[in-house]
Structure formats: structure tokens, C-alpha cells
Nucleic acid binder design. Structure first.
Lengths: 234, 234
DNA sequence: AATTATAATTGTAAATAATACATTTATTTT
DNA sequence: AAAATAAATGTATTATTTACAATTATAATT
């Protein structure tokens, strides 16, 4: 093989996707896993992944992998970390770049991922995964918590219209903490990014609860978005 | 070439290090750059980097690269992001994993990095860098700010004994903001991680200013360290 | 010996943000 | 008409953040 860096070794580069979804009915945060259909570790639970191809970037590879599984485009997708323990994949030296993705479970069509034996698991009930995929999920949860504390990513996980209760449940799932509903709604309203509609969802109570929408316009206008709060200073 | 994933392509994997240092005398945050000594882009300013070798992880590669340049061991080192634009390196398809490192400038011996024409630059005065190294530095600055707002990493950048003024200057450099010195010392003391010594530094004033040490023991005991503050909730 | 110059040290009041906590309201079902 | 259900809402207390300036210790100068 001829190249300019000819003393150096090449390796395989894979991407793996940690796909989070929120089920607004069950009010549970979930993760999408597949049964791996090739060796090694065929038949075991795994993150959805694939190899980076010559003409694409890592993010393009992750998007392709995600689209293959879900049929969805324009998914929230962010690089997490590259994993490189030497024998993480027993077959060949392969490093893997983990991406984490947020989707709205409701957008889903079951047929699309039937082929992969894909299943949504409650985070607390996920099975053991192959290779270092467990570490990837742990790190992704941390990142999800961090992101949720700094940016309004909750809206990536909810349907376009949602109730205050669903929003609160989502944050309670993410942070594994309970909040007072008076203080919660006070706080989220203070950001000024919620539009209350004149529409009610009556599925869960006799009174019905107002539906809200995320105000994407306003969010974009605040171009610097939410600012990281300095804990040491200011 | 024979392997189990034989439809897949292999690529070169490099690491590049964004090395931050704080000069406690000039009271400036700096970055360490080298003049690249091989093609392509020979002679231009660059981050210190190298290829990942078959038997090592990315972090081991980054540590090796850092040690080659500085002679230092046990440096604060954290993976930042993997860069993968297809033609980022015009010679060969190469992805690069950026690491950011924090060192104490005072620990340095000039001879060790003379070979690389390494130079400390004030962040605001850094030259244009090769490939996508400018993006790496920009991202590293953001990460530095984030880390500094969540963990007491300032101490990685200071000498073992430092003055309150130096600590404040460091944070002012990182955040590009000025702080009130009464509020600053009140705040950092409230964390309970500073030990004031019975020693004074008289180099900058007639009165002299107390020297402080970071209380590593106490920090480790608070095993969960500093907690990320939830901006959305609580 | 007294004065001056320099940066270090220190405190308090006001404003803002976070928390704790329980009753009333709208609607459907019985 | 009454009962049942979850939704909607407000206030007082506490904690945190901010704004702001006078005093102190020492070395250098007169």
C-alpha cells in the first residue's frame, strides 16, 4: 500500500449511536438498542453502528446509520467521544466514535427498524451491551444531563405539542429527581421559550391541560443561546 | 490485506494536542505551538501531534506526544473531539482526535522543546494554524471555559503556591471578564479548597500577599466533586 | 524618623434567585 | 347534584449574587 505516511498504521473507524427517546404516554426516557446481526457478538444487544466510509465525515456516517435504522432525517446528533481501547473489538483493531442522538419516539414507524430487532428500553432496564457500549451509554447519560442543564434540548425529545406535565416528567427522568410543579412551571416559563396554545389535552384529566409549543424563533434570536453559568466566577 | 471486515476501509488516525499554560508572571493564558517539520505544510505553525500506533490507545498516544514535546508526565489531558472532514489533511485521509492539556508553564525546560521550535503564544496573538487546527483551538477554549466553570481546573495551570491575585488573573484570562476582587476571594474561599499558607510573596507589593495551596485532599473527599448546576431545573 | 507610595486585605447593604409549601378550579362521571 | 380527578396558581422565607471603598502592612524616599 502506497502513501505519504508510510511508516504509519491504518485502522478501522466505526460510529455507534446512543439514541434517546421520550415516550410521552409512559412518561419514560428510553434508549434504542438492536440485536447485532453479524460476527463477532452476533445476536447480542448493541448500539446501532457502522463503519465510516472513505467519502464521508464521521457525522455523515452517524447520520447514515441513524437514517438506516429509523428512516428519520435531521435528527439532533452530537459527537460524544472516541473509544480506542486496543482490543475493544476482538476481531480487528477498530476505534469507534460514539454519537448521541435525541428523537421523538412518536415520529417512529415500527416497520422501519423491525429488520434490526430494534427495541426501546427504559434506561434502568437496559440489557448488558457488547464491547464498550455500556461505557458509551453511561457517558451519553452524563452528556444528556449536562446538555439539558445548559440548552433547551428537552424539546428535541417531545412531540411538537406537549403538556407542562410531560415536560416536567421528561426533566425528572433525565435528572432522576422530582421537582415541585409550581416551581417547575415558574422556572420554565421564565425562559420565555414556551408558547401556551388555546388547546387542551384531555386524555389525562377531566379539566384537561393546556398544550405548549417550543418557541424556536425566540430561541434562535437569542443567538448566543443559553449561556453556561460560571460556577467559579459570576 | 486480510481481515474480518474486508469490505471496509482503514484510515490514518492522528492525535493533536491543544496545550494551555498560564504564565503567572506575565499573568497571561498561553498556548504552545510548534513549527511543523515534515510535509505537507512543513514550516507552518501547528499543534503538536502524531499518529496513533497499533498497540496504544488514543490517550496513550496523546500522552506520548506530549511527553516527547515537554518531557512532562501525568499532565491533565482530556479528549476534546475527533475531526474528520474528508480532505482535512491533503496528503492522506486522516482523522484526528484533539486532546486538550493543561500545564504549569513554570515546570518547563526550554531545551526540551527547542527541537520543535515550540513557542508559547498569548491566545489572542496566536498565528494561523495548519489544517483544521484553528477550529480545534476554538473548541478547546470553549471546553476550557466550561471545565473551569464546573471543576477547579485552575489549579492545573498554576504553580503549587500561588497568590489570590494570580488565581483571579487566571480566571479573568479564561473567561475574558473582570471580577471584583472582594467578591472573587469570597467566592473561591467559600468552596473550602484553598489553604492559605503562612508565607508571603513580596515580589509584587510592599505589603506582600499570602500564598495559597490547593487542598487536593479535600477535593478528592468530595468524591462527586463539583456538581454541574442545572440551569433548567434546580 | 517621618512621609509617601504600593498593592493587599477586608465587610455590608441591596437586589436577585431559589425554595418550600396548599388551595382553588374546570370538567367528567356517577 | 355530588364526587372524583388532575390542573392551575401565589406568597413568604431563605440563600446567593452583586455593587461598592476604606484600611492595612511594608518598603522606599525624604
Amino acid at each position: 500500500m502506497h502513501n505519504k505516511y508510510n511508516n504509519e498504521a491504518k485502522v478501522f473507524v466505526a460510529v455507534d449511536c446512543i439514541i434517546f427517546g421520550f415516550d410521552p404516554n409512559a412518561e419514560e426516557l428510553k434508549i434504542l438498542l438492536i440485536k447485532r446481526n453479524f460476527e463477532p457478538e452476533k445476536g447480542n444487544w448493541s448500539l446501532m453502528g457502522g463503519f465510516m466510509e472513505p467519502g464521508e465525515t464521521l457525522k455523515e456516517a452517524a447520520n447514515r446509520v441513524l437514517n438506516t435504522l429509523t428512516g428519520l432525517e435531521n435528527i439532533f446528533l452530537e459527537q460524544l467521544k472516541t473509544f480506542s481501547i486496543v482490543d475493544r473489538d476482538p476481531a480487528e483493531r477498530t476505534i469507534s466514535v460514539a454519537y448521541f442522538a435525541l428523537i421523538n419516539v412518536v415520529d417512529f414507524k415500527d416497520e422501519l427498524y423491525r429488520d434490526f430487532s430494534a427495541t426501546w428500553f427504559k434506561i434502568s432496564e437496559k440489557p448488558k451491551l457488547i464491547f464498550d457500549h455500556n461505557d458509551m451509554v453511561t457517558l451519553a447519560m452524563e452528556r444528556l444531563r449536562f446538555k439539558a442543564s445548559v440548552e433547551p434540548i428537552g424539546f428535541e425529545l417531545l412531540p411538537a405539542k406537549f403538556t407542562m406535565r410531560q415536560l416536567q416528567m421528561l426533566y425528572e427522568e433525565i435528572f432522576e429527581e422530582k421537582y415541585d410543579k409550581r416551581n417547575f412551571s415558574k422556572k420554565v416559563n421564565s425562559f420565555g421559550l414556551l408558547k401556551r396554545l388555546d388547546e387542551k389535552d384531555k386524555s389525562s384529566s377531566k379539566k384537561g391541560s393546556f398544550l405548549y409549543e417550543f418557541d424556536m424563533e425566540k430561541y434562535k434570536k437569542r443567538s448566543n443561546g443559553f449561556q453556561i453559568r460560571h460556577q467559579i466566577m459570576n
